[in-house]
């Protein structure tokens, strides 16, 4: 553990809190502290619109970053991410199904089930003799995403009136976030905490599965727990905000450069940074970009970053 780690975590915590305060203050309607007293609408905008949205964005960012960090450690591969390996698509399909079939009832459960099924499917497809090579992992993710997007297209084709809603799951955004969503999002810290308990095990499994067995890690059980909880986190994130890409890819990568590879520090750092990143992306879009889906912004940053990683990996 690097000596600067506690300072970094503290700085990130402060940044997140300040960011949340700023994000509540920012928006298309400018609200000054004085107007809170004079305008009755002002309270409503802060309390019912901005605050739940800010909290949800921070928690969803946190969930995606932690899920991404766990997957990268587990697959020993800094290109894994819930969006890239198809977990998010599975979650989006699950959420869409719940909309088409049950008018949105049980959306988080459906999203989680979809995410979990997609994750385990990719895991089983990509596995070769106990190892998960990068190439097969990425390709299985692509293949599975194609299949899922075919299902989604079919649902969209037959959806009729809910088409707009389905489009939303594909692009990802925080338009309709209410306090109900924030209540679901409370499960995110729980999932993060469970994963954090296995931080030391993930450090060890990132050396390789055989090595982890030599050091006393029950590798198969660890993989099941981590994939399950990662799918759980992604499923909740998707049920709140749709499929938002690349937060889970970029955040762990950048944080690893800053705090080092030790997951006992990396998890909290990535969780906080993911929250900050998604919060600011969302604040930018709703303040300056006419509330464009935030997934578009993260993809604009994330996809070039992914290409950069791919290129530098090829050079190495």
């Amino acid at each position: 553990m690097r000596r600067t780690a506690p300072i970094t975590i503290l700085a990130l915590t402060c940044t997140l809190l300040i960011s949340m305060a700023c994000a509540v203050a920012l928006g298309p309607a400018s609200i000054s502290p004085g107007s809170l007293v004079t305008l009755p609408n002002a309270w409503m905008i802060i309390w019912d619109v901005r605050l739940p949205r800010v909290i949800a964005a921070a928690l969803v960012g946190c969930a995606l970053a932690v899920a991404g960090t766990a997957m990268q450690g587990l697959f020993r591969n800094s290109m894994a991410d819930p969006y890239i390996i198809g977990t998010s698509s599975g979650g989006a399909l699950g959420a869409t199904l719940s909309i088409v079939l049950f008018a949105g009832t049980g959306r988080p459960v459906f999203a989680f089930a979809g995410a979990a099924i997609a994750t385990f499917a990719v895991y089983i497809i990509a596995r070769q003799g106990g190892k998960i090579p990068v190439e097969t992992l990425l390709l299985s993710g692509v293949a599975l995403s194609m299949l899922l997007s075919a299902f989604l297209s079919f649902l969209m084709y037959t959806a009729g009136r809910s088409l707009h809603q389905i489009m939303f799951w594909l692009m990802g955004g925080f338009w309709n976030v209410s306090w109900d969503d924030v209540i679901v999002a409370i499960l995110i810290p729980v999932g993060c905490l469970i994963i954090y308990l296995y931080a030391r095990d993930i450090n060890i499994i990132s050396l390789g599965e055989e090595d982890a067995i030599h050091l006393g890690v029950n590798v198969e059980r660890l993989k099941q727990i981590l994939l399950f909880v990662s799918a759980f986190l992604t499923g909740i994130a998707v049920s709140i905000a749709g499929a938002i890409g690349f937060i889970g890819l970029i955040t762990p990568h950048v944080m690893r450069l800053i705090v080092g590879p030790d997951h006992r520090v990396l998890f909290p750092a990535a969780a906080l940074a993911g929250g900050i990143l998604l919060l600011w992306s969302d604040t930018l879009t709703r303040t300056f970009a006419n509330d464009m889906p935030v997934g578009i912004i993260t993809a604009c940053f994330g996809a070039p970053f992914f290409i950069y990683l791919l290129r530098s990996r090829m050079k190495a």
Partner: peptide, 30 residues
Amino acid sequence: MAQQVAVVPQGISISFDYTVRDIVMMGRHP
């Protein structure tokens, strides 16, 4: 098992930048 038997492999490729102390400390995991 890990408290009884230790294995030194032929060499491992480590994808993340752990320090030597981090790696040795992993031996205490069990």
